[in-house]
Each structure stands twice: as C-alpha cells, then as structure tokens.
Design a protein around this nucleic acid. Structure first.
Ligand SMILES: [Mn+2]
Ligand SMILES: [Mn+2]
Ligand SMILES: [Mn+2]
Ligand SMILES: [Mn+2]
Lengths: 219, 219
DNA sequence: ATAATTATTTAGTTTTGTCTAAATTATATT
DNA sequence: AATATAATTTAGACAAAACTAAATAATTAT
C-alpha cells in the first residue's frame, strides 16, 4: 500500500476526528485539514477504492481496520519525532507539531523503530498523548479531566486537547507544561474562569476556553 | 521561495552534476533522477522562471547564485541526517542515503541547525563527503585519489564516488568503510584489478570498476 | 557536404490534488 | 407538510509533475 502524503494526512485526520468509532463528516475533515468539502469528497472516493475507509454518499466516513492500522503508524511516527525534537534537540512543546507534520511522512519501519529505541521507547509525547507501539497498540490516554471540570485542588497537567501554537506558547509563557503541579485557588461562576497557583510564581487566572483544553489529573 | 520536493530534487541533481561550473545536459539530469528528458525540459522552464537556473534551449543548464545556495542547504540537510542515522541510530553507510533522500526535504532552519549541533557539527558525512555549514560554506573534498590511481602502498579509505546500495553493501561485507586502513599487495595489468589487505583479514582482489569508485589517501 | 546518429524540445495525455459554482440531499423550523 | 437552511456531492477547471510519440536541432561519421 503506497500512499501519498496527502492521503496520509487525510487518514490521520479521520483517525483523530473519529475518536473511537464515530462516523466523521465531510465538513469536519475539510475544517481539520484546512481544505474544502468538495476536495474531501474527491479523496473519500479514492480512499474507499483503496479499502482504507468505509464511505457511502452522505453517510459519513469511518476507517477500515487497514485504515486504522495505517493511521496508528503515522501517529506513532509523528509523536516519536515530537519526542526527539523536545528531548534531544531542545525544542519546546509548541514548536514541534508543525515540524513533525512533515517528519511523520518518512516511511521507514527500521527508522521508526530505531528512533523509538534511541528515545528509550517513550510511551507519551511532549503533549501527553500516548505513542502507539510497533504493532499499533496504543494506551488509552491516562485518566484525566479538563481543568474546568476537575474537583480536586492539587492537580498535575496531563495534556492539552488543542495543539495550536498560540495556545501552547501562552501556556509556556505562564510556566504551564506537561507534569507541572498547580493548585486551584478559586473558581469564578460569572465567567467560569479559574484562578490557579504554581509554586514560586504569582497566581494567574485562566479563561473558561483555556481551562477546557487543559487536561489534569489529581496528585 | 517555496519549492516543491520535485524542484528540490532537480536542484540537488544539477548541483551534483555541475561539480563546479560545468553546464549540465538534459539527458544527464534525466539519467540521474531516473526520469525522461522531456520531463527535465519541462522542469527547466519552471526553474528558469524562478531564477534558480540559467537555461536557454539546447544550451544546457547551470545554477544561478540563488540556485546554488538552495542546493547547498539541501545537501547540508541530506548529509546531516546521514550522520544522525549512522552515529545515533546505528545504521550502516549503505542504508542511509535512501532515507536521507526523504528527510532532506524537511525545511526548518532551526531543525537543521539544532541537528547539526546535536551531532557535534560534523564536517563530513558517513561517505566522506563534506557538509556545508549554516551559511552554505563547504570545504573542498579532502585531497584524495581513486584507488586505481594511488601510488602509495599504505592507504586510508577517504570516500566513495558512487552511493549505490549494492556497492556500499559489497564494501561493507568486505570490511571496507570510511577510515579503514588498507595495504596494496599487487596490481594486475591484464584487468587493472588490485589486491589489497586489511589488518586481521584475508587479502582480497578488487575489480577496476570498484577501485575507481573508492577514494583513498596515503597514510 | 551529406547523411546518420544523438540530444533536446514540443505536443498532447495522464494522474493527483486542489478549487469554484451549481445541483442535490439531509436536517431544522415554522 | 411545506419551507428554509445546512451539508454534501457533482461538474468543470486548473496546476504540478510525469509520460509517449513526433518534430527539430546539434553533433558525428562518411
Ligand atoms: Mn502531515
Ligand atoms: Mn503531540
Ligand atoms: Mn530527495
Ligand atoms: Mn552521503
């Protein structure tokens, strides 16, 4: 199965949006890939032809077993390269997604597996997302809730559900990264913002939008 | 200047064939890239349009200053990744060219420079070829001659002028790699083959074809 | 100088991936 | 149930990168 980079990007987006077994809409894929719905329909026909997705007109899209297998390989490569960039080359977490977007398309199993070994077979990437192993087995994301729903006071940052550079840069500037310990000081009903404190730093207030994308775990 | 992967591959081939200031023929590029002369003519028009090459019908092709600058960036990336694959991931020299052929197209200056730093700013790649620095400055290949023309008896392997996997695999199997010390035992006039000896290994005879592609330096 | 050969270009197609505009289908509202 | 709105698909076009076959230019041999 020799896929183009465009095909790989579609497969990965569908995997991401599917999130389990949901059927994925044409529009959502177009939005995710910053392309037009008409282009998605065109590609859907090609991927169906290659048995990578199930697709009937107007019925949405789901990955086949084969399609999911390929998606997991791409995700594995993407996340391993992100680890490499952060752990070995000293990038910070908001810089790596874009570069990994290209590196993920270098298809060499030997390269991927050696890279994983070189990195100590990491199980999560710099954003807290789990890395599939060589057989495509992926751990469920470790139990975590978004900060806006958390009940405990003392929490650890477990991940972020939005990879946008601007959000990650913001968190970075505020000293919030993977594993950071925070304490909830106050929750404000009127705008659902939350005031938190990181050790040795001034308290800060996060908007509802932000606290919804931050995943946390009680300590 | 946003180039496609195809355009980058053409630029790199022209750089390689130009070797200084020679004008490069349509056919030689087609052979190098395993494509057809008609396709080279098509691309020549595009690259001329972008001011990356000088080209007039039937007159051959040369890189402009801008074109050469880009070529050196691609070569830099290619050779740095080859170093990474060999030094950090334990690949052997015949395996890395193909993978680097893809990795070289990931365009991030920050990535390239950090990778170089991570590798200790190497000056030559695993095949003995010099690596351009961040400004595109490249050392002349260290003085060496092909084995078939060498006069000294005790020699060091300085590089190979053919990157084909099959040749590199052959040399590998015979224990010949970059920096290996060899001693010339005998040269045979009738077929221009040469018998050599590596310490702690049986003597072996190399054909003229092979000895022409091996670059050596007297010890 | 002519003829034969080789190199290069042109013309016309194909595949991949994208787009816009228009048509169709599905869903929501009254 | 009829209508309005939203989602999706189709039709037709385009750009990039390749190809084949045919035409033309340059080079080499006679
Ligand atoms: Mn990608
Ligand atoms: Mn990630
Ligand atoms: Mn390449
Ligand atoms: Mn090399």
């Amino acid at each position: 199965m020799n896929l183009t980079i465009a095909e790989e990007n579609y497969i990965k987006s569908i995997y991401k949006l599917q999130d389990g077994t949901n059927s994925v809409s044409t529009n959502s894929i177009a939005y995710e890939l910053d392309t037009k719905p008409a282009s998605v329909t065109d590609m859907a026909k090609k991927l169906k032809e290659k048995s990578l997705i199930e697709y009937e007109k107007y019925q949405g899209i789901t990955l086949t077993h084969e399609g999911k297998k390929i998606a997991l390989q791409i995700v594995r490569r993407h996340r391993l390269w992100e680890c490499f960039l952060v752990d070995k080359l000293g990038f910070s977490w908001e810089e790596v997604h874009e570069i990994a977007e290209d590196l993920e398309h270098v298809r060499s199993e030997k390269l991927t597996n050696r890279l994983s070994e070189f990195l100590g077979n990491p199980s999560t990437d710099p954003h807290g997302d789990p890395i599939p192993d060589a057989n495509g087995k992926i751990n469920k994301p470790r139990s975590s809730v978004s900060l806006d729903k958390a009940t405990a006071k003392r929490l650890e940052i477990a991940g972020v559900s939005d990879q946008s550079t601007s959000l990650l840069e913001f968190l970075n500037a505020k000293g919030i990264r993977l594993g950071t310990h925070i304490e909830v000081i106050e929750r404000y009903d009127f705008d659902n913002s939350v005031e938190i404190k990181i050790k040795n730093q001034p308290a800060l207030t996060l908007s509802e939008q932000v606290s919804k994308t931050i995943q946390v775990r009680p300590i």
